[in-house]
Simulated assay, not measured.
Amino acid sequence: MSVSDDHKQQALAAKTRGNDYYKKKEFKEALEEYGRAIGLDPLDMTYHLNSAAVHFELKDYEECIKQCDKAIEVGRENRQDYTIIAKAYARMANAYHKKDDLENAKTYYQKSLTEHRTRETMAKLSDIEKALKDRERLLYINPEKALEEKTLGNDLFAKGDYPNAIKHYTEAIKRNPEDAKLYSNRAACYQKLAEFQLALKDCEQCIQLDPHFVKGYTRKGLALIAMKEFSKAQTAYEKALEIDKNNQEAIEGFKKCILSSSSNPDEVRKRAMADPEVQQILSDPAMRLILEQMQTDPKAVQEHLKNPEIQSKIYKLMESGLIAIR
C-alpha cells in the first residue's frame, strides 16, 4: 500500500488544523481533523498519536491506549522512527498511570525506554517503581500480624536466641513500622550480640516515633556506653530522667557516665577532639573568645545561650565532654 504525495500533503494540512484546535482545547474539532488525516495517510503513526493525545485530555484513557497501540502497529509495519514508537509507549504508560494501573504503567515506560531513553521517561519510571514499593509496603502492614511476630520475638529473646528474635522483630516492624517499641526490642537483641551501631540506629528510630518512651533513651545510653561515648550516653540518660526522674536504669546509667568521664579526662578529650564537628567549633575564633569569656565570667553563658547557633555549638561541646556548665 502506498499513499500519494497529494494525500500526504492533505493529511499534513488536516493535522495542522487539528493542532490548532487542540491548542484551543476544541477537542471535538481536533479529533475530526486527526481522523481525516488518518483516512488520507493511514501509514503515518503520528496521526494516531495525535488522536491519542486528545483522548488523554478528555480523560478517555481506554481510547487513548487503543490509539497508541494502533500507532505502534502502524509504526512497526512502516518502519517509523524508534523515537516516535517510544513516545507512543510513554503515552500509553501515562494513560495507565492515570487509571491507577501502576503495573501496566511500569511495563510501558520500560518498553518506551527500550526504544529510546529520555530523562523524562526514566524519571517517570522511577516514580512508578517507588509508588509500587510504597503500595506494597502499605498493603503488608497488619498490626495483628505484627503482634504475633513480636510475641514470637519475645519468646526467643527470653530463651537467649537473639538472632532469631531479631528476625521476628524485623518482620513485626514491616507489619507495623510506626510501633516504637518494636525498634526498642530489636535494639535489645543487637546489644546482646554486641552490634551497638545497629542498636543505636534502632534506638534513634524508636525515639523519633515516640519521644516520650523512656526505654528508647535508656537503651540508647547503654549502646553509647558500650561504644565509650560517655558524654552522649549521659545526655540520653538525662533525657530519660526528664521523662521519669525515678527511673532506676536511667539513674544508674547516668552515674556510670559521670564516673567513666571523670575517671579518664584525657581519654574523653582525645575522643572529643577526633570529632570533625568539635574541631570546626574550636577552630572558630569567635567561639574561642566566647569560651574564654565563659571561664572568666560564668554568668555570660546565659547570654550566649540565647543565640540558637551559639547554643547549638556550646551543647555540642558539652555533649563531647569538653566543657561543663554548673
Rank of each mutant, 00 (worst) to 15 (best):
R135E: 15
L113H: 09
L102G: 06
T107M: 10
P163C: 14
L152E: 13
R119L: 10
A131S: 15
E103Y: 05
A105V: 04
I128C: 05
A188P: 00
K111T: 01
K124I: 00
A123R: 12
E149L: 10
C189E: 05
E178K: 15
N185Y: 04
Q191N: 14
R137N: 14
Y169A: 03
T170V: 04
E103F: 01
N164M: 12
L113I: 11
E195V: 02
K133E: 15
F196P: 01
S126K: 15
F157A: 07
N142W: 00
Y96G: 03
N142M: 02
N94R: 13
A95D: 02
D127T: 13
E115T: 07
N154S: 09
H116W: 10
A165L: 04
R186G: 04
N164Y: 08
Y109M: 10
D155H: 12
T118R: 07
K99S: 08
R186D: 03
D161E: 14
E195D: 11
T107I: 10
T151M: 12
A131K: 14
K130Q: 15
E144Q: 11
E144L: 08
I128V: 14
E129M: 11
Y162P: 05
K130D: 13
K99F: 01
L156W: 03
S184R: 08
P143N: 02
L182C: 06
